[in-house]
Design a binder for these strands. Structure first.
Length: 546
RNA sequence: GGUCUGUUGGUGAAGUGGUUUAACACACCGCCCUCUCAAGGCGGCAUACACGGGUUCAAAUCCCGUACAGACUACCA
């Protein structure tokens, strides 16, 4: 039996590797164009880290006029969730991450498919066969227990852990041994026959981290599992070569397995792509940093932000600031431009762990929402509450124009209000504007608490209030009434001689504000009165004392 | 244990051997604006380059060691 027949005996494929080498042509790209890919597992959720990496994949490809494609890594059949793929595509889409090629809702796009790894089984096997023919891979019959056993001894002796050298029992099996075992029905996997020597260092340059030196891989790592599917490492080498990925952008947790990947690319005779290892998203957990975790951190699932009512755009902007910290400054001086106009670079990306910062997201979200028109805020609030707050939703529907008016207070001007951070916040911000929700626990009176005085202020004020007044006129009238009741009409006057007055114009207006809304802190009072109108104001005044 | 990576004020983070007396942002404090809040303007704050050696005329920046932190160490990805 020659090696070709031997390989055919061990692995059955419908095509041979030359067929695939021929089928997937080299991409023709413009100078500098990057081909990137996002390669998630279909576990049914999009991890914040995937969004981060997807953002970078997308932005690097599109700003270099390259290609960004989606590949699904479902070789771990245990973790695959039904409909997981569509969930991923949908979620990413919401964040503006779309793909030029690869898996899509309505099938697949592109010449390099299939883009789902479980459908590429024949391809991986064909290349595993190539390695067997070239004596760069071999079947292994060892059990999990064998390996556990090795590990125990290795740990005890403080030797390198893994399947290599004298521990690699099956490496020494002759062809005849193997044939006998296979005919016997013994299960086996395929391992790489590593030729590396850990005393030799590989010099390597990562796009983000820069120069590195790592020992050569000497582990005979599994490449085909007993279920016939490839391991991540092998699939990565085969797919990213065949699909023509120029830049492999992935989390830094992959850095330690880079030696294995280089070994695989070289064994397969493939060119090694460029790598960019992005920093892990970390969280501060009682003073220590740790990787964000799906189990401990609810926000690890990007869906969390949707539930919180954080606009997708805000999360995207947050991703942009994480990617390149100089983005924020650029955005501030280019307010009308999109993040797509900013040139992101690898060498501005963070090397260490990146801290996840919810306050920062809130801040970005506030700023983003403040730039929206009132109608847009209304539209989004409607969409959000429809799903998460039925009561609020119905009020928004019932009082459409009134609600838009509320959102329009101090908006659409050069320095707009920034008080809405998320759409689950709007009820807290505006409840007192709706009679249905207006059930104050207490009135936050300030300096003036005497009920006779409060009554007097309202009765005098309502005599002069005219809803047609402009803001200047409105304020003048308020000052006039305040003065006639013994309040200082200007803050300056009050500060100079506080003893001469019952209070300042601020104290006076606080009475009006609290009487109408029960709250001492609200947006512009003029606008609120205008939205209320006389009738509603009077109803509110009656309500104060009963 | 081994391998790899990182460590700059309270926090995040610029910085790629010499205009660095180390940006900027957030936080905090003060003042201004002001009918409250938000926003905005001005100013202040901080004993910041983990530690110890070395290379150099010159080091946050290059090299070596130590400490600390993190990632990885599966027939998971």
């Amino acid at each position: 039996m020659d090696r070709k027949e031997y390989a055919d005996f061990l692995i059955k494929t419908t095509h041979d590797y030359n067929y695939y080498l021929d089928k997937y042509k080299k991409r023709e790209l413009k100078e500098g164009a990057m081909v990137t890919r996002l390669a998630p597992s279909p576990t049914g959720m999009v991890h914040l880290g995937s969004l981060y990496s997807g953002f970078i994949d997308k932005v690097m490809a599109s700003q270099s006029n390259g290609i960004c494609y989606l590949r699904i890594e479902d070789t771990d059949t245990k973790r695959t969730v039904e409909n997981g793929v569509n969930t991923i595509i949908d979620s990413l889409n919401k964040f503006g991450i779309t793909f030029d090629e690869g898996v899509a809702i309505d099938g697949e796009k592109g010449e390099y498919g299939p883009y789902v790894q479980s459908k590429r089984e024949d391809i991986y096997k064909a290349f595993a066969k190539k390695l067997i023919i070239e004596d760069k891979a071999y079947p292994c019959f060892c059990t999990k227990e064998d390996e556990e056993h090795n590990k125990e001894i290795q740990t005890k002796n403080k030797e390198q852990i893994g399947y290599y050298g004298r521990w690699a029992k099956c490496r020494k099996l002759t062809m005849e041994d193997v044939i006998e075992k296979v005919n016997n029905g013994d299960k086996y996997i395929i391992r790489l026959k590593s030729r590396g020597n850990p005393n030799h260092k590989i010099k390597f340059k990562d796009c983000i981290i820069g120069k590195m030196e790592i020992p050569q891989n000497n582990l005979d790592i599994p490449i085909i599992k007993s279920d016939g599917l490839p391991t991540y490492h092998f699939a990565h080498a085969v797919d990213d070569s065949l699909m023509g990925t120029t830049h492999v952008i992935r989390g830094e947790e992959w850095l330690p397995s880079l030696d294995k990947h280089i070994d695989l690319f070289e064994s397969l005779g493939f060119r090694i792509p460029k790598y960019a290892h992005i920093s892990t998203l970390m969280v501060d957990d009682n003073g220590t940093r740790r990787k964000i975790s799906k189990r401990k951190d609810p926000w690890a699932d990007v869906n969390y932000f949707h539930k919180q009512g954080i606009p997708n755009e805000a999360l995207v902007l947050y991703m942009a600031t994480l990617t390149n910290s100089n983005f924020e400054a650029w955005q501030n001086s280019n307010k009308d431009k999109s993040y797509k106009d900013f040139e992101f670079t690898f060498n501005k990306m963070s090397k260490g762990g990146t801290m996840y910062d919810y306050d920062k997201i809130i801040n970005i979200s506030k700023n983003f929402i403040s730039t929206l028109k009132a109608e847009e805020v209304y539209k989004r609030a409607l969409k959000y509450t429809r799903e998460y707050d039925r009561e609020m939703y119905e009020l928004l529907v019932k009082y459409k124009d009134y609600s838009i008016g509320i959102f329009n207070i101090e908006r659409e001007k050069r320095k707009p209000r920034k008080d809405i951070a998320s759409f689950n916040d709007i009820k807290n911000q505006t409840w007192y504007m709706y009679d249905e929700l207006f059930k104050p626990q207490k009135y936050e009176w300030g300096k003036i608490t005497n009920s006779d005085m409060i009554k007097k202020i309202f009765s005098e004020y309502m005599d002069v209030y005219d809803s047609n007044d402009d803001q200047d006129e409105w304020f003048k009238k308020m000052k006039k009434v305040a003065e006639s009741l013994g309040f200082a009409p200007e803050m300056k006057l009050y500060r100079e001689n506080p003893d001469n007055y019952k209070g300042s114009i601020a104290d006076f207006s606080t009475v009006l504000r609290v009487g109408l809304t029960s709250k001492s802190m609200t947006p512009d009072l003029y606008e609120i009165m205008k939205l209320f109108g006389r009738e509603k104001m009077e109803k509110r005044i009656v309500k104060i004392f009963n």
